[in-house]
């Protein structure tokens, strides 16, 4: 079988990017007619209509019910509507009054999430913080123009607007400073992790040792000591996509994360020293347990809020 001088030659033939010499090489190739026939045949393939409208009709009811405030049924008393309207007018009046007296109403200083919850906070400059479960962020908005500083407990994804003032995330396990970028910060039980999705970030541990991360790089410090940089392969953190992902992670850390995403208590026996590579989904406990336990050959039992996992 005759090989090619370059392993993208056929691809560039199809996109019309071959040099004259390459074109000649290809056309003299004994299999050239076969390649042409494959492409001609493939180009006649067409997919059925994806039915976007039907899919939208199926999806959209679920979206509006999430955002819209519960609408009043026909059986409601008429006066309730008037009461609601009056309350709304009153609230608006109070709000307007607040604006009048205080031109920059104070943003909430602490935003926090509970088990299984995620929340987005918008900061004074339009930057956003997406919090994973059981996390909180404290926003120091009084001196925002000089220094954009937040304090994080847990795990969050930041999208920082470009600005003159540095943006600083403080955690008990280290801090991160940037000018404008997107990244995640996580500090849980001695493990400090920073992943950079866009731009450049600088991270430091309490002792002062610094790490500079570029896009797609990830840095981890364990008990204040930096590990070698690694790379992230995904364009978004898994937990924002609705699942937690692990790579050779000690099982007790996986269980800790499971307890943050589901309101359960895990009692594990015979799993010491085991590690897990894989993922579990949010919002579906049976599937999540199966995704962890079946590849590892563990058995589990759910009794109310307690999940017993056994490795025998």
């Amino acid at each position: 079988m005759q090989t090619f001088s370059d392993d993208t030659l056929l691809a560039r033939w199809l996109s019309g990017e071959l040099s004259e010499a390459e074109r000649q090489e290809l056309e003299q190739h004994p299999d050239f007619p076969v390649f042409r026939r494959i492409v001609e045949t493939a180009d006649r393939l067409q997919l059925p209509d994806a039915g976007a409208q039907a899919m939208w009709d199926r999806l959209s009811p679920g979206l509006t019910s999430k955002k819209r405030v519960r609408s009043g049924g026909a059986s409601r008393q008429y006066w309730i509507k008037w009461a609601v309207a009056a309350a709304a007018v009153f609230t608006l009046a109070v709000f307007a009054w607040t604006l009048w007296w205080n031109p920059s109403p104070a943003a909430p200083h602490i935003v926090a999430t509970v088990t299984g919850e995620q929340k987005t906070a918008t900061l004074p400059d339009g930057s956003t913080v997406r919090l994973n479960a059981v996390s909180s962020v404290e926003i120091f908005d009084e001196k925002w123009n000089e220094e954009r500083r937040v304090k994080l407990i847990g795990e969050a994804f930041f999208t920082v607007q470009k600005g003159v003032a540095p943006f600083i995330v403080e955690t008990a396990g280290g801090y991160v400073s940037v000018l404008g970028t997107s990244f995640t910060v996580r500090y849980r039980g001695g493990a400090f992790d920073v992943a950079c999705y866009e731009g450049v970030v600088q991270a430091a541990v309490p002792g002062g040792a610094k790490q500079t991360l570029r896009a797609t790089q990830k840095a981890a410090a364990r008990n204040g000591v930096w590990q070698p940089l690694s790379s992230i392969t995904d364009s978004w953190p898994g937990w924002m996509q609705g699942e937690s992902r692990f790579n050779e992670t000690p099982l007790y850390e996986v269980f800790a994360e499971l307890q943050r995403q589901y309101n359960i208590k895990i009692e594990a026996t015979g799993t010491e020293g085991r590690r897990f590579t894989g993922a579990f989904v949010y919002g579906d406990l049976p599937t999540a347990l199966r995704m962890i336990c079946s590849p590892l050959g563990l058995s589990y039992q759910v009794e109310g809020k307690v999940v017993r996992i056994s490795g025998r």
Binding site: Q118, T120, T128, R130, F157, S235, W236, M240, Q241, G242
Partner: peptide, 21 residues
């Protein structure tokens, strides 16, 4: 659905990358 849940954190120009991921 997952894009909708994260709609505040994912601006429209990044929606495509989010959806395919």
């Amino acid at each position: 659905l997952r894009l909708w849940k994260n709609c505040q954190a994912v601006p429209p120009e990044k929606a495509k990358s989010f959806l395919y991921t």
